[in-house]
């Protein structure tokens, strides 16, 4: 890990959140769509500095490409307007529609890419731990963390159940009706099994005083670095400058 990467990754989760909040808000404060679209490359650059460029770009494309494309298609063809740019039969692309789509998608891209960046550079564990310090109930953080654990676990058992049902003769390929029939035999053991396991989990958690009242200690801690304050002050100054510039211009 080089220095810049370490610097970004080691920032306190709420500081990282302030950074992306600033990026997202700036898209709404500045007029037009050019800056809002620029938020995506900026996030990409930050992701590159933090060493997760590939991951970030992959997810950003997956999450945004289709929806942006569809918004453009829907608005370009069906937004009410007079200035026709291109026509084919009854379909026509209108200037106003393109304009509307540009301003709409640019905001979506800005907010979505900054959120995506936040989750790429912040470990969920760190985020949850810092939220707990801010006063979020440990029950909420427990639900969130255990959800993230249970999903891959359940995916594994899905494959086990699918294989088991296949050996019993349940067909999982072929015509639509055969595949529909396979759905319940796969899902119901999965659901009933995982629900049964909650009873054991209740016992385990209660034996560790999960619902006992009183302060809880945490094994995992995140600490603020000396850079956090600097970054926050910098963001505040930038934000004030941005608002002043917007009011004056």
């Amino acid at each position: 890990m080089n220095k810049i990467q370490q610097f970004i990754v080691n920032l306190y989760p709420t500081t990282k959140f302030l950074i992306v909040l600033f990026l997202a808000l700036s898209a709404f404060i500045t007029p037009g769509y050019i800056w809002s679209y620029l938020v995506l490359p900026i996030c990409m650059f930050l992701a590159y500095l933090a060493g997760c460029f590939k991951e970030f770009s992959n997810l950003a494309i997956k999450a945004l490409l289709l929806i942006v494309l569809f918004i453009f298609l829907l608005q370009a063809f069906f937004y009410p307007g007079q200035e026709i740019l291109w026509q084919w039969g009854i379909f026509s692309v209108k200037q106003e529609g393109i304009q509307f789509a540009l301003s709409l998608t640019s905001k979506i891209v800005a907010v979505a890419s900054s959120l995506l960046l936040f989750f790429r550079i912040t470990k969920v564990k760190d985020l949850v731990s810092s939220l707990e310090k801010l006063g979020l109930s440990p029950k909420v953080t427990f639900i969130f963390l255990s959800t993230l654990q249970i999903i891959p676990e359940m995916q594994k058992s899905t494959h086990v159940i699918m294989d088991a049902q296949k050996t019993r003769g349940v067909e999982t390929e072929g015509k639509l009706m055969t595949r529909v029939k396979a759905f319940v035999p796969i899902l119901s053991p999965l659901v009933l099994g995982s629900i049964a396991s909650t009873e054991e989990r209740v016992l385990t958690l209660e034996s560790r005083a999960f619902s006992a009242k009183g302060n809880k200690t945490s094994l995992y801690q995140v600490n603020k670095t000396k850079h956090d304050l600097k970054v926050r002050i910098l963001l505040l100054i930038l934000f004030i400058l941005l608002i002043v510039w917007r009011v004056l211009s």
């Binding site: 249970i150 999903i151 359940m154 595949r179 396979a182 759905f183 899902l187 659901v191 909650t198 209740v202």
Partner: peptide, 23 residues
């Protein structure tokens, strides 16, 4: 409370099974 993570996981895995079976 313990039911909630299971529910969320079923949302995900259920959608995935649907995908696997191409429904």
């Amino acid at each position: 409370i313990l039911l909630i993570p299971i529910g969320v996981a079923i949302n995900f895995v259920g959608a995935q099974i649907v995908n696997l079976l191409k429904l």
